[in-house]
């Protein structure tokens, strides 16, 4: 399990505005996901829907360590990462609704969010398949001297496939500026980590490639930020890849179709005691950074953002049927 003592908010070196923004982002992600789950149940959203509840601190802490010109490439549970990167939740919700105004024009859905202008390079749904892409993006960063770091996020379920080992090997060989971030939520869909991986400490799998690797408390947004700041500096400084294993937990099922038969309710309840949003709120309050009024205002703002997103998605047009044949080739 993850780290022991949470970093004191006051020792983080972050100003009040930044700290409150972390909480704001985590709340927004949570509310967005809850609303999406509700709309899925009502038939407004189709396909697969993988919610990020419980893992918010990982996205918010890690992505806060990036510069605007850096890139994020992630797996299919991508709503939280996209929101933390600053993608417009209106266009995210519209994508879930399959509308023309969605971030991927309604072509991708939940698993394939993308916004090139914000350096958010997907949303990929073949487990482990985007790790080689991160290596290629890192290669381009080095070759074109972009000084760009690529944050590549994947789950524990993505660390048993060949791509994982091929990518870590080549990342080290080619010295690419990639921060590999494993969100270890202990389950690959419904299969527990210990049933799928001979090694339970995922970060040790990276260590054999001589890539610096460490485990972080993924329920602690400041610990996530601190570790990622260090990893990003390493990669940007020419040190090559870095590996982080964030210990986290998803509070809901793998997808909306998941009856969650594979884990004990007591285990879920235990992890909910470490809800990253509640923990962070408590710490901010204890150290006098957050007042009840601040929190109330933040709750209201994030509720409004989600309500506006739903309204925008509802009112947006479907893609025109002519769009069926668009975007297959750049040079048809």
């Amino acid at each position: 399990m993850g780290g022991k003592t949470a970093t004191k908010v006051g020792q983080s070196g972050l100003d009040k505005k930044t700290l409150l923004n972390f909480l704001h982002q985590m709340l927004l992600i949570r509310k967005f996901e809850d609303k999406a789950g509700e709309l899925y149940a009502r038939g407004k959203i189709a396909g697969f829907l993988h919610l990020y509840n419980g893992e918010e601190a990982v996205a918010v802490g890690a992505i806060s360590a990036l510069e605007p010109h850096d890139l994020v490439i992630t797996h299919y549970r991508d709503h939280g990462h996209a929101t933390a990167r600053g993608l417009d939740v209106k266009r995210l919700m519209a994508e879930l609704f399959g509308k023309a105004t969605g971030v991927s024009k309604g072509h991708g859905g939940s698993m394939h969010f993308f916004d090139a202008t914000l350096g958010f390079y997907g949303g990929w749904a073949i487990v482990g398949g985007h790790l080689p892409l991160a290596v290629g993006l890192g290669l381009a960063s080095n070759y074109l001297r972009k000084n760009q770091v690529i944050l590549c996020i994947f789950g524990d379920g993505g660390t048993n496939i060949g791509y994982f080992y091929e990518s870590l090997n080549v990342a080290k060989l080619w010295n690419v500026p990639v921060v590999f971030l494993c969100e270890n939520n202990l389950y690959g869909m419904g299969t527990a980590l210990h049933r799928a991986s001979a090694i339970r400490e995922v970060y040790r799998k990276a260590a054999v490639f001589d890539i610096p690797a460490e485990r972080v408390d993924g329920m602690d947004v400041l610990a996530m930020r601190e570790a990622t700041v260090k990893a990003v500096a390493h990669a940007r400084g020419g040190g090559g890849p870095y590996f982080l294993e964030a210990m986290t937990y998803r509070f809901r099922g793998h997808s909306m179709a998941d009856p969650i038969l594979y884990r004990d309710k007591s285990e879920v309840e235990e992890w909910k005691q470490r809800d990253p949003i509640i923990l962070f709120q408590q710490r901010l309050r204890e150290e006098g950074v957050l007042t009840p009024q601040d929190l109330e205002q933040m709750e209201r703002e994030t509720d409004e953002l989600v309500a506006d997103a739903v309204k925008f998605a509802e009112e947006s047009p479907e893609p025109p049927l002519s769009d069926l044949h668009e975007d297959i080739y750049a040079n048809p």
Binding site: H130, P132, L133, V135, G136, L139, Y143, L144, E166
Partner: peptide
Amino acid sequence: GVIAGAAVGAAMGGL
């Protein structure tokens, strides 16, 4: 796998 995937990534990165 990584050769082809890195080619896709490199192309997305401007090469």
